[in-house]
Design a protein around this nucleic acid. Structure first.
Lengths: 218, 218
DNA sequence: GCAATTATTGATCTAGTGATCAATAACGTA
DNA sequence: TACGTTATTGATCACTAGATCAATAATTGC
């Protein structure tokens, strides 16, 4: 019975407390989804009173929106770092796709899917969803554009290719979320699809195997 | 003020009333999303009392789950009918993709996205999501397999290709939901991606233009 | 026509949400 | 040490959700 007890929270400087609350929101979003980021849940996880959460957050919609942004931005930076470790645009793209589809990131996928849903009723969240999608697209587009410049890729529309590739990644991740049982080997198929988009010869994208685990980028 | 008034609902045979309530749920799901399918909302739309909805429905989770299933199944049958009007597997695939990505179907896309989300907390819904995904996959797989048999497609894994293509469609639709502003011309890109997946020469899928509006299948 | 059946309702309950605010208690400073 | 500032809380409000049930009213069968 001691597990649900709560002693009075130690007084902390506002910045620190605010950071803790934001972190609690992020943590809940990753473990139980954005829909679970509720006033009382965040308060419990942060070890404070619901009133205090309400005091620091500019409304729960904001708190949810910022938890989403923080989680997704961190993921993008991590994956981008890993992808740019590739020696050629092809290798970079392969690394990016591989990392983005890593089943270990299911928690982030849940956040994305719920954001699409909740964003229809939470405008602050919707804005951040669009922002983060743009950021992702920009990352992919740069790689594609670089490959097009060297003649490695054949496309006149790097922006379009980037959107298409991202859509593919999102869709396959969402699919894996529901059908985790049927984890088909998706690697070569995706590679073939990307090859088609970029005018590459069949098999050229899978030629360079991905050696390192995608979690840490050197 | 007369608009919110409600006269006593005329007594109807149970089957008919149950159908009306189910239809109300479907209608709300299509216009405002699955999350808006609430006891009171359905009651209002059906012109009855919340208690009556509760009386006929086996819980709101069930009502939502069945609204989802009905909507998505109808869409699949419609699109399948249209797709099978194509003369070759390539044409069929092109028709299917084109119809599935039709922006006119945004309402159904919303239902799909919300189902992925709500399915995590509504098991009855989750089951139906998996069922409907399987049904879609089967439809696509058959077309791909037919093409592989005639040598028109080059793949040893029609099932995998089907999943991949569906993931692409879902992802792009979800994307369009959020970024309706940037409706890039996605046609050729998708075609190229599919060509890559199926070992087709570049441009072969776009060769046959889609003439008819994808709504009605002859 | 009358009684039995049952579709429909109004009232109400519990649970969970976000939010507010006066009161409390811990801290920094004079 | 005493005081002013302010981080923190408990109590509470308004709202929405799903669900239950005795009471009502319409239909059916005799």
């Amino acid at each position: 019975m001691s597990s649900t007890e709560r002693t009075r929270a130690s007084r902390k400087p506002p910045g620190e407390r605010a950071a803790e609350i934001a972190e609690a929101a992020r943590s809940i979003a990753l473990t139980h989804g954005l829909a679970a980021v509720t006033l009382r849940a965040v308060a419990t996880r942060a070890g404070v009173t619901p009133a205090l959460v309400a005091h620091y957050a500019a409304g729960m919609e904001m708190l949810v929106a910022e938890a989403f942004a923080a989680i997704v931005q961190a993921e993008l930076e991590e994956i981008r770092g890993f992808a740019l470790g590739g020696s050629t645009p092809s290798a970079q793209l392969a690394r990016l796709v591989s990392a983005a589809l890593d089943p270990l990131r299911q928690d982030v996928t849940v956040v994305w899917v719920e954001a699409w849903s909740l964003g229809r009723r939470n405008e602050a969240l919707a804005v951040r969803v669009r922002t983060q999608m743009d950021a992702w697209q920009q990352t992919v587009r740069r790689i594609v554009a670089a490959g097009a410049e060297t003649g490695e890729f054949v496309t006149e529309d790097p922006a379009g290719v980037a959107w298409q590739l991202l859509g593919m990644i999102d869709g396959l991740n969402a699919q894996a979320l529901v059908r985790w049982g049927t984890a088909t080997e998706r690697g070569p198929l995706i590679a073939h699809a990307v090859e088609g988009m970029l005018g590459l010869p069949r098999g050229s994208l899978t030629a360079e195997p991905i050696p390192a685990p995608p979690m840490d980028s050197p």
